[in-house]
Design a protein around this nucleic acid. Sequence first.
DNA 1: CTTGGTCTCCTCC
DNA 2: TGGAGGAGA
Length: 570
Amino acid sequence: MGSISLAEANAKCPGLIVLPMRVERYRQAGAAVLEVLNAWGAPVEKTSYDVVRNAVHVGDAEGFFAQHSQGLPMSARIWQGCEEDVSPDLEAGVRLAEEMRRAIRCKLGLTASVGVARSKIAARMMSPLAKPDGILLVTDTEADAFMLSRPIRSLPGFQQQRGKEVCTKLARLLSSRGAAINLASDVASHADDHVASHLEAPSVDVLTVGDAAQLSAAVLVRCVGEDNAARLRRAAAGEDSVADVRVRGLPRTLSTEASFPPMDDLAAIAEQLRALASSLVKRLVAESAARQRAPVRLLLSYRRGYASSTSGGVVRSHGLAWPPRLATALLRHEASAFATVAPDAQGAAQSERRNRIPAREEGIVSADLKPAEVHGRDGPRAASAVDICSLSEELAAVAVPSLLSRLAAPPQLTRLIVSADFGTAASQPVSASIKDFLVEGTTSHRSPSGGQEAEDKSAVLTTSIQPKLTRSPGIPVAPAPKKRSIREFLSKGGPGAEQGTKKTGRYASQGGKPASLDSASLRVRSSVQDADLASSTDDYSWSCERCTYLHDTADARHFLVCSMCSCPRR
DNA sequence: CTTGGTCTCCTCC
DNA sequence: TGGAGGAGA
């Protein structure tokens, strides 16, 4: 059976000790995987803070095909097809995928599962089936069958509300027509149990793209609406464009949140909020130091009432006034930013009303921002623990009354979110070279012999990698390999090729054994045993390989060598 | 393979 | 035009 929600667990088991999830570990792992994949120079899309998806076009690589046509790697499986049907370019995609998996395994000790197909959507639907640690590909001959066999509820965009609604409507229509539903055999036996409840949930969950595809366009539109019908048709056709891959820049917002069973105790609520404020401030200060940027808005959101899953309950959010010291700490000169604006009563009122960071009103752009530095004995450093602590308190002092003043009689608070918004300018455009590559990959090319348009033989490969962390002592990251283009890779081998057997990072001493991946500490059943883990210093610190300086994980952007270390020794 | 936490995007007002 | 809130990844 699957796990139960934390709220449910708390209700059933008063006094349950729940350890906080170690989100920072996930972030680090996500970033590390991203870094490894970036080494190939192909566009990599980050789809969640800890999941990266990678779309690679393999086209026009005859040299590579010729060199490496000795079959598929061991880890690859074919979806209901045979090896003869695998075209050379798909095979190249699989080999590339294997290289990437190898790099991730060797450098990070994480596993990755990959789906390979000609269309992005098919590759994407395929990758979860490749779990826990493999490659699954679908041949061109089977691609349509594969897409038609997908449960609608598993399509992107159909996994929650929309899917439920669409499938319910579809099921009603199909059964009223007495239509043969693809999955009839599976469901019928279950449905028999519930005499007349053939419209009940189970059948709905298992409706496939093929079931929808039986209907004419007009009927489908009338049943589920234009937008949904179009999405379904596109999915059935395996349509989507690789040019859609979005290489996202820095996150636009940073947020921290916590969920809990309905809470009424104001003191406890305030305590939760303080903890969240502290964790956000820590991250903001780090962000200011690492990337020279400061957010423009602070936001406080909360949910009241129980909701079973991701959404539901009543969520409210509102802006927070900027705590002056926090604002200035995140900006260039401790004094200038806020002070230049504050004397002007009108300006201050306006910025309060608009909840803008005051300096922005003065036209200071993010490029001007420098991290606030606190000078300690050892020279400039990121803000100290003491500073972070007092800045957190300042934020809490703003946030707590702001929240409490809005809460009605029994708050029944189930969720708190504190976030910082960096404005709209944060995302980065796809770099020119990547763009060129994409265009080249997606358009058909001239065949070398004749002047005729050659068939577009590009393959799409989607990697979906969600690192699950466990009791590994920290996530080692090898020094970033030199960036190489796909072209280079195809002719000379992947970035891992030249590194041969050399292993870097902590796992080297463990014989390169992949770290066991722990499902975060929120897993109720394991939370108690995790207690010793959480308190071990290893989880919260790491040491620089050069100078062996011991760091808090919070400031770990470079895991092998610390950013302060200028020691040239290897 | 879940959940919970995080982040983005879309829609409506 | 932009903020609130819902939905999805």
